[in-house]
């Protein structure tokens, strides 16, 4: 029963990891920007929701909408005013990385100053588990996590497959020259990638604020997991990132079955390490082109 419980926990956590990772992968794949501040987006989204819903007692759909709005604005603003200028002068992988890292540091400390550095959580009945079978506890949040993750992912695939801008977005990850030849503006598409990618952190941020709770430093871990999932899934493969997120979540929890808890993070990164060395093209074997 412990095993089943750990797998279910893993799916709940992994679904959210997957969703966040897809956001990162979308941005990274389409723009080649190593968006280290993706974790900061997560923290911003979670704290905005917390502040509106739990402190100002705003109705939840409005809180979530406001959170979406702010986080999209944050992502797009970063693309326009930080990454854009860096790309126009230099644009090397590491220059962008350092700039993005700086943003993440600023956001984390700003959140700490504004909302406090301690632990906060959004009180909600959704995080309270019920005993489904003897010894098997599942919270409504688990179901919501899985359903939301699947819905978001299907929606994203439809968007990328059916709409012009979606197709352009996919094309951009192949070649920006190609996109320009077809008369599309890579800048506008890049903005779109940031908007979508940032939007995808909201479900995970809102649910995490209810289940695990938040602290100002939460972005760093989210970021590490997104990077790991993106690589394990294969850069540019959204399907891969989603599956890898799920895999990492399950692995993290399954590790508890036999190991001490402090090894569960190490297990996740061991998987990352193994994938890079043995199968650098990721889950679905798209050949890396760098």
């Amino acid at each position: 029963m412990l095993l089943l419980q750990l797998i279910i926990n893993g799916i709940q956590v992994g679904a959210l990891y997957g969703l966040t990772a897809v956001g990162f992968s979308l941005i990274f794949g389409a723009t080649k920007i190593f968006h280290f501040a993706h974790g900061a987006s997560f923290a911003i989204s979670a704290y905005i929701f917390y502040y509106l819903y739990a402190v100002l007692l705003v109705w939840w759909p409005i809180s979530i909408l406001a959170s979406c709005f702010v986080v999209v604005a944050f992502g797009v603003a970063l693309d326009r005013y930080v990454y854009g200028p860096i790309q126009s002068t230099d644009g090397s992988f590491f220059t962008i990385f350092v700039g993005s890292f700086g943003v993440a540091v600023v956001v984390q400390n700003l959140i700490g100053t504004v909302f406090g550095r301690g632990f906060i959580s959004v009180p909600s009945a959704l995080s309270k588990s019920v005993e489904l079978a003897p010894g098997l506890y599942v919270a409504p949040a688990a179901g919501i996590a899985v359903v939301t993750a699947v819905a978001c992912f299907v929606g994203l695939q439809l968007f990328l497959g059916r709409t012009n801008i979606g197709i352009a977005l996919r094309a951009l990850s192949e070649s920006s020259a190609l996109v320009r030849t077809f008369g599309l503006n890579p800048k506008a598409i890049s903005t779109c990638a940031f908007a979508l990618g940032s939007l995808l952190v909201v479900p995970a941020a809102v649910l995490t604020s209810m289940t695990s709770g938040l602290n100002a430093a939460i972005g760093g871990r989210v970021m590490l997991i997104s990077v790991a999932a993106t690589i394990v899934g294969g850069v540019g493969s959204l399907r891969g990132a989603a599956c890898a997120g799920l895999l990492l979540g399950i692995a993290e929890n399954l590790a508890l079955w036999r190991f001490d808890p402090q090894w569960s993070e190490a297990v996740m990164f061991l998987i990352l390490f193994a994938f890079i060395v043995l199968r650098p093209s990721g889950f679905f074997g798209r050949v890396a082109t760098s």
């Binding site: 029963m1 412990l2 419980q5 750990l6 926990n9 893993g10 709940q12 956590v13 010894g135 506890y137 289940t211 695990s212 709770g213 602290n215 430093a217 939460i218 871990r221 993290e252 929890n253 508890l256 001490d260 808890p261 402090q262 569960s264 993070e265």
Partner: peptide
């Protein structure tokens, strides 16, 4: 006795071990 790293934030798995 379940030890956790000082930066851990996810304890649903730990809770399962505790119940067990």
């Amino acid at each position: 006795a379940l030890s956790v790293p000082s930066n851990a934030q996810q304890f649903s798995g730990i809770a399962a071990r505790v119940r067990d």
